[in-house]
Design a protein around this nucleic acid. Structure first.
Lengths: 340, 340
DNA sequence: TCTGGCACTCGGATAATCGGAGTGCCAACT
DNA sequence: AGTTGGCACTCCGATTATCCGAGTGCCAGA
């Protein structure tokens, strides 16, 4: 049975432990928080909380430390997002508004997020998969060499160099340009790739080969989800504040190198909800000591990617959650604007 | 006076210390290296080397540790680059050949370099400043909205969205496209920016405003050296092997966040020579415990950027130098090929 | 159900001890 | 002059011993 006061005690334990990084005892608790009861009472509650698995004693005669389960309860029931201060809101707005292109938005977001939370921040680049084709440009560099440029609605630009078997003249290329754009402009890339596949059938015979080559490259670029896997990482210096190096820092540093791992951490579930993954809840047993606060972003429920922070299970959840949500909102808005 | 044998002793000390991370004593030295003399003799030499400032005793009755000056001598006089193994050469070649675009080349290089050296690797993106304009593309998205795409010889693509005051039709834009390309294709961007400045004077009166707007954006993009400051970092997990956290790891982690700092570390001197900066020789006093092995890259003495590794002063210089040089060569070659 | 009291536990900080690797120096040897 | 074995000495770091106190569980009384 977990009544209200026990929850208060749990909240107090979490807050104190996060702040001090040391097991918290009954006496210190009643002093620092106005619980209105005696240490002995708190001790009883603590014993109960421990029975339920919410807190844990490193050893007899030590204070209590929240378990993952304890943090979970804290996050689910007890945490009220710390509202961002006006100054912080302004900082977010001005910093992100100053971004000149997509790369810049991502870079600035990571930096911002890591500074706000003093944690390691991760921002996934907007995925190609759900974006639409804004424009395709074909440029004749030499008669047999075409530069193919694919511009997507998110602002991402993909470019490929194509070597043709037969020379092409400018007017031919212009026809082709019109054709590919008609077939794909405004269409989601998956559909665009499909639409383009039939295109070579419709062109003049002597252009078929060239068209086919170009279309192939285009669909390849469209279905190349390599860039879906791109992420930006920042704030690693914050790892330095971690206490335990071997169990906490090293595995995380290793994870940060592996972008695939990071994406899994962010949880590319496709949902835009703010999610918190605590310790062992995550997919990697080596990262049992780290938590992830993440959310999707994208204009109007349209999931373009995820961003979040990772840190020790002992982290400031309310603050991190608020920061992550705030940054995600601003990023979504920026991307939306650039997309009109 | 530093005779040959003393140099041998120094080399042995450096090698042993790098390998073991512990002060090395006279006895261990003669055992591990076939010096052919007795420990007592080595001790005499050590005393001399210490007088000269090449090595240093953490405390009486401890072994010796090389000083920065000692490493310097080692690197200048004693180090013979460890040749890359055939397997390593092949790994470099295949990995880098698989790169699909500029970003990919850089990403792969960082990864490669960090794995080869087991250090933190840094690769600067090719600078805009010395590259030439390959092509400029203007795309009419709406009558008053133009997407400007700038393609450079290094494969970098810059794109900007331009809002025009007056609507423009396709044929007008085509004229403009021809004009800007004629003015700038094949020209170094600094010169191209200058050449473009005069261009609006030559166009038809009703286009002047649009031309001016577009040209402004272009020269801005050309002189926007923001991307000159881009660097990729990899292998931070290797920091975990460092012993001393506070003095070695934390300052470096902080430095890695600051790309400007990194560029200074790489030494954007413009020279392509392989340089080694040891400990205090570098520009940052907080990084007195770290060394940098860096070199420029770019096809045929044409400096496009720098790459290198950073690590503790106690690092495997011969190995790192060889790896850095090898990777730089391959990167240069790749960039050259993509540039034909 | 809460509270004050009390005996008990145990980790971590502090102090004390000890061994050994390494040194410098010197006298003898080549 | 350069090299070597011997030897007394130093001092770090690992090991062990000691001790303090925060924190606990439990119980009896309000």
């Amino acid at each position: 049975m977990v009544d209200d006061r026990k929850l208060d005690v749990l909240r107090a334990i979490v807050e104190d432990y996060v702040a001090t990084e040391e097991p918290v005892g009954s006496k210190a608790l009643v002093e620092r928080h106005g619980l209105g009861v005696s240490p002995a009472t708190v001790r009883n509650d603590m014993a109960a909380l421990e029975d339920e698995g919410y807190i844990h004693q490193p050893h007899t005669s030590a204070g209590r430390v929240p378990t993952d389960k304890g943090y979970r309860l804290f996050v689910d029931k007890l945490a009220t997002l710390k509202p961002m201060s006006a100054a912080e809101r302004r900082a977010i707005a001005t910093l992100l508004d100053g971004a000149v292109d997509l790369d810049d938005v991502v870079q600035r977001s990571v930096r911002l997020l890591s500074q706000l939370t003093r944690q390691v921040a991760i921002v996934q680049y907007p995925t190609l998969s759900r974006s639409t084709v804004r424009h395709i440009e074909l440029v004749l560099l030499t008669p047999t060499r075409v530069m193919v440029i694919l511009i997507l609605s998110t602002g991402r630009v993909e470019q490929r160099l194509v070597e043709l078997d037969a020379p092409l003249v400018d007017t031919d290329l212009a026809e082709l340009r019109v054709a590919v754009n008609q077939a794909s402009a405004g269409v989601q890339i998956a559909a665009a790739a499909a639409a383009l596949a039939d295109l070579p059938d419709g062109v003049r015979p002597e252009q078929v080969d060239s068209a086919r080559t170009i279309v192939n490259v285009l669909s390849e670029a469209m279905s190349d989800h390599r860039s879906d896997e791109r992420v930006a990482v920042g704030g690693t210096a914050n790892l330095a504040r971690y206490g335990d190096f071997e169990t906490a820092v090293r595995p995380l540093l290793e994870a940060l190198e592996e972008h695939v791992v990071l994406l899994k951490l962010l949880g590319e579930s496709g949902t835009d909800a703010l999610t918190v993954r605590i310790g062992h809840e995550g997919p990697y047993s080596e990262l049992a000591a780290t938590s992830v606060v993440a959310t999707g972003y994208g204009p109007q429920e349209f999931h373009l990617g995820s961003l979040g922070v990772v840190g020790p299970t002992r982290m400031d959840y309310p603050g991190s959650m608020a920061a992550v949500r705030a940054v995600a909102r601003y990023v979504s808005r920026i991307l939306d604007e650039g997309n009109q």
